[in-house]
Structures are given as C-alpha cells and as structure tokens.
Design a protein around this nucleic acid. Structure first.
Lengths: 327, 327
DNA sequence: TTGAAAGCGGTACCAG
DNA sequence: CTGGTACCGCTTTCAA
C-alpha cells in the first residue's frame, strides 16, 4: 500500500505539502502541485479514508434508519438515498430499528464512534432525547418533527383531499375511511385531509382504524362491510390496507368498482398487480429520499439549506378500483 | 472523549496493558485486570473503532451487494443480513449494483479502503476478475458460483419439481412454463426442475421466456393465452411473473383456478394480496440471508465453516390460484 | 507480566 | 509557500 509519505518522497516535497494539495487546503505552488499530481499518478496513490477519519473525526458514511426495510415503503427510499449518496461519495449504512428506541439509540452510539457524518431517519421517536442531544446532522423523513431537524415528507393532507374527492366525483354516497395508526404523523395528516374534504361535501362517512397490515385490514374491512352493505366507497390510508379491503370485497362477492370503489395511498408497486388495479394516491418516495439525502449532505458540508421543511407533491393514479367520472 | 491513555492513567498501568486486557491478547495479571475494569467503568470508556481499524486493517463492516433493493426479493434478505450482523457486532453497508460490473468494482474498491471485513454478494458477475482477485471473505447468494466462494441458495430445482407436480396433481393437461432470464442461475435450475417433472409425466407443455417483470409478463402471457386456449396450468419462475399471468387471465375472462391454475415461485408478500391468493413455491429468503451472514462472519473470524454450499429448502404454499387435489 | 515506543496513514499548526 | 513534527487513538513488538 502506498502512503502519503511515498508520494512526498517521489515528488520531492513534504507530506504536509502533499496533504495540503490533496485537500485543497493552504497554499501549494504550481511546481509542487505538478510534482504531486505526477507522483500520485505513477504510484497510483489512494488516500486512506480510515487514517483521515481518525484525524478529522469525520467519515463519508451516512446512516439510514428505517423501522423495517421489509415494509414496502422503504426499499425505494433506501435506493434513492444510496443513489444520491454515491453521487456525492458517501456510503450508506442500513439500520432497521423496528421503531425500538433502544435499537435506535444503540445504532446512533455505535455509528457515532465510527465518526459517521449524519443520519436520515424515519422514526416516531424523533423527539426522544437521543436525537435531541445528537450533535450530528440529521434529516427526518416522512414522519417528522422537531424544529431543529429538517424534514421531508409527502403532502399527505392534500393527497387525502384528492383521494376523497376522487371518490366523491365518482358518485360515492357512503364512504369508509380506513384510518392509519394514530401515532403516525402521516396517518394523521391523511385523516385531516379526509375530514376536510368529506365534511365539505356533506356525504355520509365512517371511520375505522386499521394498521398498515394486509391480513388485519382484510379482516377488519370484511367485518365492517358485512354490517354496512351501504358502503360504496373506501379510502384507505395505505395501499396495503386498500389491498386488504379489495380482497375482503372479493370474498364477499362485492363488485369492484361497480358496487364499491376503492382508493389507496402510497403508490407501491403491488398496486398495479391487483385485479382490478388499485387506484391510489402515489407518493414520490424516490424523490423524498433523494431530497433528504441532498439536504443531509449539505448540512454535513456546512452549506446553507434553503428550507427546513420539504413537502413532496403526491399524485392521483387512476386504475381499476375506481370508475370513470360521472358527468 | 476518554481514551485508552486516560484509562491507563486511572488504572495506574500502561496503555499496552489496557490494550492487551481489552483485546484478551497477551498476559495481564489479575490485579491489573481489576484496575482496568474499574477504570473503564468509572470513565465509561469506549474503544474507538476507527483508531483500531487503522492498526488492524480490519473493521466490523459488512458490505451487502444486491442488484436493486427495490426488487421484492431483497428487502427481506437485507433484513436478515442486518439482523444477524447486528448480533455479532457488525454493521452493514448497502450497495445497489444494478448488475453493473463497474459499479460493483467501484464498491469493492471503495469499501476495501475502509477496511471492510467482507461481502455478501448477489450478482451474476461473480466470476469477474474483481471478485476472483479479492483477498476478502465473500459469500455468494442465490446466484452463485465459483469453487472458492461459499454459496447459499434455495433448492430451486426441487422447488420447480414441486411446483410442477402441484399442477399435475390438480389435473392440468397442458402447462405453460414461464422461464426466467437465461443468465440467471436460479432461473435455469427452476427450468431444469420443471423439465424433469414434466417429461416424466408425459403431459403437454409450452415454454415461454419472461423477464421477472410484472407488466412485461402480463403482456407476454396475455398474447400467449389468446393463441393457446387449451392451457390449463401456468407455472411461473417468479411471483411477479405469476402475478402478470393472473392479471392476463382476468383480463381475458379466464376463471382462475377453475379453468386455469397458476403457481408462482418466490413467496413474496404480494402473493397473498392477490385475488385469488397466489399459490407459490416459497423461498425462505430470511433464512438464506441469515445463513450467508453467519458463514461470512465465520470466514471473517477465521473459523471453520462446515460446508461450502448451503441449500435452503423451499415450500409449497397453497392458496387460491390452484384447486384442491383431484382424487 | 509489564511498559516504552514505534508505528497505522493522514492532518494541521507553526516557524521559516 | 513549504516542511518539520506533534498528534488522532489504538496495537504490537521487544526489552526488561
């Protein structure tokens, strides 16, 4: 392994000069620069990031903390983070937290020791002390919140309004809203959006809380539909719940979208595989991840960030679980 | 930050002794040990992994190279790797290669500089020189092979036999096999398994190559079924393709499973969300990841590994796209 | 058993 | 502009 000393010797300058040149810090004469460049080339010298880390107490590592990569929302996020990170020369460490504060803290500690540069976090524990007291740059994703931590999320409220209106415009007169877990910010925003739109319309509605879990949602919806034959529209806070609702409808012999229309939320790939295809409010998860990563890297590199709160627009994706608009 | 020197001072011994004690290397008297332990406790000393890395040229980092974490097969794999790695005190770095040799090589190089301990790789480039010449421990996953790299994969051939027989036992007389990409080892093994079972049965069959991609598969199958109304069973090399086939059948008004039975391969979560639920040969992806990680860590820590090739059993999961067995 | 000291490969201060 | 050198925090050799 060739070291900076080898380069210095070959270039006929001191290691200090080589280091300065390599880092663009301090003055280096044109001659010296040339000599160093040549030496680096000839020796195929590559800087040792570990040695550098030890000095600078910095690394080009980014930690990505998600509840569970297995949850269909996160792979695309991870992909975006990794893509952007790579572009800027950063490497990403994947951490599954299971929303467990202990695990989260453990990761933060462990990685801090490795001089990790910053974290992108999806968690509900963001207000917990282990985040508040972190000296490192953090960007929060999706579920957020703390005035000193930049956040990027979808426009959940507006998306919910759009989804509700989609059902309304297509003639639904009795809508079931599948509300997500009360602890999740996005779920609450979606709930608000729904309430806003439905109240304004004066249309009849019901609200049932559903975890973002397929089989559970299926069971809950099946039970509910048996008791409420009048339901002609379901707006689910997640695609997984929507898929559960669709399956429940099929089981009960209810025609979708003729008798019952369904709209989901998320836009995960599975939606198009269902029959009929799932109409949904699609989030631009990739974009969220990309923005979060760029913001984080700016923070790491002490650049100004334009905003503190980024809201990524969502989009109505019409597929087979809804009819065409009534004229 | 408290360093090993602080501990040494407090314990009244030299840093060398502290280091030896902490690493369990070399001799340390009981007295010294006690003093060090106490000092560590009092000072809440924690070893600096970066400084250690610089010396040992080792880290507790594992690289996980996958084509694309967005592909439904990989999140669970990543989850398993991360879980097991955490258990042994390792941290995992996520790398999306897109099956691009350049990207792969780039990761290998970059991470080698960080003194990464080893890699778990899912790739078709495994025979490329950048792997062959790696001095680091590697474990290959799923698609494999090189006699010096341990491999863990599903029992694809046997799974394909099981899947085919499932169709046969349920009365299928004209089966369409959706073959996966020819470059993929698992796809080839599945193909072999199918051929073995179908040949033995003497039942009529067709083979069509399909990428592991939903929309493409749907289109291909739809076209094929239009021309071949006699098909009464489809065995797909992947669940995604099976989902495409199912959707094509629905579009064409073909009753599943009454007129056409379908079996997929993979066992991804999406399968149960379809209507009817997708019968499939489920791989134990989590187990594969867990085994691969344990094997890798053994290699890293210079322990003996029992085998060089691990085959994880698959399992037939009966759901709605197949009927009950005919008596 | 123990400790002094020489690294590991860079960074950065400070004098020249 | 440049170079000598202390130092980042830990490991390891070698002599005592």
């Amino acid at each position: 392994m060739t070291t900076i000393r080898d380069v210095a010797k070959k270039a006929g300058v001191s290691v200090a000069t080589v280091s300065r040149f390599l880092n663009g810090s301090g003055y280096v004469s044109a001659d010296a620069a040339k000599a160093v460049t040549d030496a680096v080339d000839e020796l195929k010298y590559e800087l040792n990031p570990v040695a550098r880390s030890l000095n600078t107490k910095q690394s080009h590592l980014i930690g990505l903390i998600v509840p569970d990569i297995t949850n269909p929302f996160f792979p695309e996020l991870a992909r975006a983070v990794e893509d952007v990170a790579l572009t800027y020369g950063y490497t990403v460490i994947l951490c599954n937290s299971d929303e467990n504060p202990e695990k989260e803290r453990n990761y933060l500690e462990t990685l801090k020791k490795k001089y990790i540069a910053g974290f992108i976090v999806t968690s509900n524990q963001l207000d917990a002390p282990h985040y508040a007291n972190m000296a490192l740059p953090i960007v929060a994703l999706d579920r957020a919140i703390n005035d000193r931590i930049p956040t990027v999320s979808s426009n959940n409220r507006e998306g919910a309004v759009m989804g509700t209106q989609a059902l309304l415009q297509r003639g639904c007169k009795d809508i079931l809203f599948l509300r997500g877990p009360e602890k999740l910010n996005p779920a609450n925003d979606r709930f608000e959006g729904f309430m806003e739109a439905i109240t304004e319309s004066g249309v009849n509605y019901h609200i049932v809380t559903c975890p973002f879990h397929f089989a559970d949602s299926e069971k809950i919806v099946e039970g509910f539909l048996k008791e409420h034959k009048e339901i002609d529209g379901i707006f689910a806070s997640s695609d997984v719940s929507a898929a559960g609702a669709l399956k429940a409808a099929v089981t009960l012999g209810i025609q979708v979208p003729a008798e019952l229309q369904i709209v989901g939320f998320d836009g995960i790939a599975m939606g198009e595989m269902l029959s009929p295809g799932l109409t949904t409010i699609a989030q631009d998860v990739y974009k969220m991840g990309a923005i979060a990563t760029r913001v984080l890297i700016k923070r790491i590199e002490n650049q100004e960030i334009e905003q503190h709160f980024y809201e990524v627009p969502v989009q109505l994706k019409l597929r087979g679980t809804t009819r065409s608009v009534e004229k």
